[in-house]
Design a binder for these strands. Structure first.
Length: 753
DNA sequence: CTAGGGTTAG
């Protein structure tokens, strides 16, 4: 986990986030937004010779009275649809005195094409009320929308209706039905239906292949692919994408090159899939080559490929490149876009936002998000989710609340994606209560949501509560996955629950068949270490063959320090330095272990070695938010405008604390600090300065929240405990790994962090 | 006027 100190002056101006769209919580909400940004400002006409044709024709037919004719009206409507003026088409349709199947179909297929599924279903409902019998075209459009929305009931209903009304089923319609079942995850239905199909074409096979890939049955999918008599581009795309999603990137890459040799030429989707493949393999070179091919094919202006490129570069850590691609986005001129292009424009923006978040550049993420709002780009669910996650990592509660309110104003309901981000955000911003509130309010709880909540508890030192939740989750019939186990093992190790931890570790392997990864092993080593079972760690490492994992050795070493086992620590550190000769953490750990055992000479030697090897330590920094400003402090810092007052208040405070039993251990301050080392005397560590400022500048009663980029040292931890007692003040400290809640002289971590 | 394949969460 990496925290960032963010300067809110750039982003806190609340006017920036003023909601600009129509707020409505009913079903038409999406439609209104589309109207607001979408088609009405667009004039592009696709394949029409003259963009004003529908309007001209419309006006003409009104004049000569031919608009009373149903066929003419249908024709004009279809022209509007073609030119992406769906609002006009809809209006004309609504004003019609009579409509036939064709009128409905034109409109429904138009909305289905641009992916506006809710409108399709709404129209279909009206159609039924007016007792108009749908034809095959209508039905397949409606089914497409059902599958996009994963509306199983609706799809099943339509299927039943088709059967009972004796509608002719052709391949296209049958494929649509099959697709609905697959998309809704009803594989038993899909398979049963597949058996009854009269005719099967390439599309049918592709759908089935995709279905097998979706449930992770690679064998069946590959078998099908190999036996397929005719493979089109989509067959290749499906199989390559499926392999990749199932974690077989290398195999996917092999097939991609096979495709180059003997397969059909690439299309847009192939390029897109190939880019995702490059980024999941972290092979920037491959991505570059694909980019080159896209340029050669002249496809660089395709919206979807632009977002894929942005995504690839950002996943490979090249935000500058991503930004270059992003800048090729045509400016909004209100006349050039079609609906489809608007959609990919939105995705480009949200890709940028999530790219910045992924790369830890939260400030840019927030700025981009703000521009998005300002430029009136439709803020979609993706960008909203990303931005919540940016707030989580920035850790400013006020900002998070602000964004939360804004999202609610836009009208997005809290689904699982957003919900888990909210929980994470509130937890990381220090408000466990709000995290709980979101958790309790969300209706469809899935693994990710539960895992977020369990992680939230663990983060705030409530290990036992985390374990209780984990048990509850299993009782509710939710299957934990690998992340859930990382989180629960983490909770166990924080709370010192060795037995439970071991139980879950074997449960994971034996009952859930999850192969432990580096993180699980590290948690286990941590667990043994905190419980003081140092000898068992050696055995554990040997037994599991994990001696190449440096995180395991790091955890081992800090346990040696905790239990002051110098000899063993020495042995461990040799292994660690072999694995990570340039990692600052290893040196810091080692020097601290020496210090903990009063080996001052060796501790100093360690730091000298670091200097010789040119390894720099991250400077300790603490920050506190007051109103719209972030005040940050480093040790011994005098740059703050009120620094004189802060220091004299701190001295006075330390004096008063000493009266109730606090003693400043200079030696400890200088040495036993994991991160901030004692070049400056008297222990003006950054967190003390931040807390002093916090007390001075706020009224009593409200908790003081400070953040630190490193771990808290023992002395400061002590200092804060006494302060919370003396001033009867709640102090919340977020350090590198967790939250400490200080109250009445005690800390939620129970002095074990 | 019609089907299949491509980016969000812990």
């Amino acid at each position: 986990m990496r925290w960032t100190c963010l300067n809110t002056k750039y982003i806190s101006s609340s006017s920036v986030l003023k909601p600009t769209y129509v707020t409505n919580t009913n079903n038409h909400f999406e439609f209104q937004r589309f109207q607001h940004y979408g088609w009405y400002q667009f004039r592009a006409v696709g394949d029409l010779p003259n963009e004003s044709l529908p309007d001209t024709l419309h006006a003409k037919s009104v004049k000569n009275g031919s608009l009373d004719n149903l066929d003419v009206r249908n024709y004009v409507t279809s022209l509007y649809v073609k030119s992406n003026k769906l609002d006009y088409a809809h209006k004309l349709f609504g004003e019609s005195p009579d409509r036939d199947v064709r009128s409905w179909t034109i409109l429904i297929s138009g909305f289905a094409r641009i992916g506006y599924c809710r409108m399709v279903l709404e129209l279909f409902k009206q159609m039924q009320i007016e007792r108009v019998c749908p034809n095959q075209f209508t039905l397949s459009s409606v089914l497409k929308s059902c599958s996009s929305l994963s509306d199983f009931q609706m799809g099943k209903g339509i299927h039943g209706w088709i059967l009972s009304n004796g509608i002719d089923l052709d391949v296209v319609l049958e494929n649509s039905i099959l697709d609905v079942y697959v998309k809704c995850g009803a594989f038993d239905y899909a398979e049963k239906f597949f058996e009854t199909m009269k005719e099967r074409d390439t599309v049918t096979w592709n759908v089935m292949m995709g279905a097998y890939m979706h449930i992770g049955d690679m064998g069946k999918a590959l078998d099908l692919f190999r036996r397929l008599p005719f493979k089109d581009v989509a067959s290749w795309n499906t199989i390559i994408y499926g392999l990749m999603r199932n974690g077989h990137e290398t195999y996917a890459l092999e097939l991609l090159s096979e495709m180059v040799e003997i397969g059909p030429p690439f299309d847009k989707v192939t390029f897109s899939v190939a880019l995702v493949l490059a980024s999941s393999l972290y092979v920037l070179e491959l991505g570059r080559q694909i980019h080159g091919r896209i340029l050669r094919f002249g496809l660089q202006n395709d919206g979807f490929l632009r977002t894929s490129l942005i995504d690839m570069y950002s996943k490979c850590g090249k935000m500058e490149k991503a930004l270059l691609i992003f800048k090729t986005l045509p400016l909004r001129t209100n006349s050039k876009f079609t609906c489809h292009e608007t959609k990919t424009e939105v995705v480009s923006w949200s890709s940028m936002v999530s790219g910045y978040v992924r790369n830890g550049e939260y400030e840019y993420a927030l700025l981009t998000f703000c521009s998005m709002v300002r430029e009136q780009i439709m803020v979609d669910r993706f960008s909203v989710t990303s931005i919540v996650s940016a707030c989580a990592n920035v850790g400013i509660l006020l900002l998070g609340q602000h964004i939360h309110a804004h999202i609610q104003k836009i009208g997005y309901k809290t689904d699982v994606h957003l919900g888990s981000s909210y929980i994470d955000m509130y937890a990381k911003c220090g408000s466990l209560n709000d995290a709980w509130m979101i958790f309790k309010q969300t209706v469809d709880l899935n693994v990710v949501l539960w895992t977020s909540m369990i992680s939230a508890c663990a983060l705030h030192g409530q290990g036992k509560e985390a374990v209780r939740l984990f048990e509850l989750m299993i009782q509710e019939g939710i299957k934990p996955n690998e992340v859930s186990f990382v989180v629960v093992l983490n909770a166990c190790s924080h709370a010192g629950l060795l037995e439970e931890g071991c139980k879950y570790f074997s449960l994971m392997k034996e009952v859930y068949g999850i192969k432990p990864g580096a993180e699980h092993f590290t948690c286990m080593v941590d667990l043994y270490g905190r419980a003081g079972r140092l000898d068992e760690i050696k055995e554990f490492i040997h037994k599991n063959g994990i001696s190449q994992l440096s995180s395991v050795w790091k955890s081992f070493l800090s346990s040696c320090r905790l239990h002051k086992n110098f000899e063993l620590g020495k042995w461990v550190s040799e292994r660690l330095l072999q694995l990570e000769p340039f990692d600052e953490g290893s040196y810091v750990l080692l020097s601290n272990m020496c210090a903990a055992n009063h080996r001052w000479e060796e501790a100093a030697g360690m730091r000298r070695l670091m200097q010789q090897r040119g390894i720099n330590k991250v400077a300790g920094q603490s920050w506190i938010q007051q109103k719209n400003q972030v005040h940050s402090f480093v040790m011994g810092d005098r740059s703050h405008p009120h620094s004189t007052e802060i220091y004299s208040y701190l001295d006075e405070l330390i004096g008063r604390l000493k009266e109730i039993g606090y003693s400043l251990d200079v030696k400890m301050v200088m040495q036993d600090v994991e991160e901030e080392q004692g070049e400056v005397l008297l222990g003006y560590h950054s967190e003390k300065l931040a807390i002093a400022y916090g007390i001075m500048s706020t009224t009593s009663g409200i908790p003081i929240r400070i953040m630190k980029n490193l771990r808290v040292c023992t002395d400061c931890h002590n200092f804060i405990k006494y302060t919370s007692q003396l001033l009867d003040r709640e102090i919340v400290v977020r350090d590198l790994h967790r939250f400490h809640h200080f109250k009445h002289g005690l800390c939620s971590c129970e002095d074990y962090w």
